[in-house]
Amino acid sequence: MRILVAEDLYLLRDGMVHLIEAYGHEVVATAATGPETLRALLAFRPDVAVVDVRMPPTQSDEGLQAALAARREVPGLPVLILSQHVEQLYARELLADGAGGVGYLLKESVFDGEQFIDALERVAAGGTAMDPAVIGALLTSGTSHRRLERLTEREYEVLGLMAEGLSNQAIAGRLFLSDSAISKYTTSMFGKLGLTDDDNVNRRVQAVLAYLDHS
């Protein structure tokens, strides 16, 4: 994969580049400020970009704004946002365009190199990779609470993992269940939520999140 790394702290940027190269991927460019990130995103069109939220010059949410701006220019441009903290508000903004190819993880997710690269690949393929904390909060937030009460505990668990971006197979592995059991749960879950089933993992996740967002 051709990857762009946007991070203002040199040590972190360097570490990330090393990690990505250690897994045999190519870092095509790095950026250290918001405007630089936007320019690099549009110029290099990487397979996936790793972008920090807070960056110079204003030290506010420059990185996030650059990513959102780039995705307005190039819909579905895969971006994985890394941050010291996760906010539901930002997650909703990232998911709002419904184009997929978005990730939003805590910075310590790079501690587990394999899972991090896996998340990068998922986002590059147009899928999603969301921090469990965001998903958990999305599922339990006040507005969506009532609609989800009809789900069984197991279905709820499956929905959460699905929203993180996991495939049926991965969910089955996580919950120690068979693939067919998982697809049974998803079918009944979508029935209860009034969504039509679809084999494409990404579209299902988006449907779930869009549903939560607009309920």
Binding site: V53, R54, Q59, S60, D61, Q84, H85, E87, Q88, L89, Y90, R92, A137, T140, S141, G142, T143, H145
Partner: peptide, 24 residues
């Protein structure tokens, strides 16, 4: 709260509302 320095009061309160267990 980081979202306060990144976005200011309005969005920080919005973020707070999203994480509150009741409908806000």
């Amino acid at each position: 709260p980081p979202v306060l320095s990144e976005r200011g009061l309005v969005d920080a309160v919005r973020a707070l509302a999203l994480t509150t267990p009741i409908a806000v």
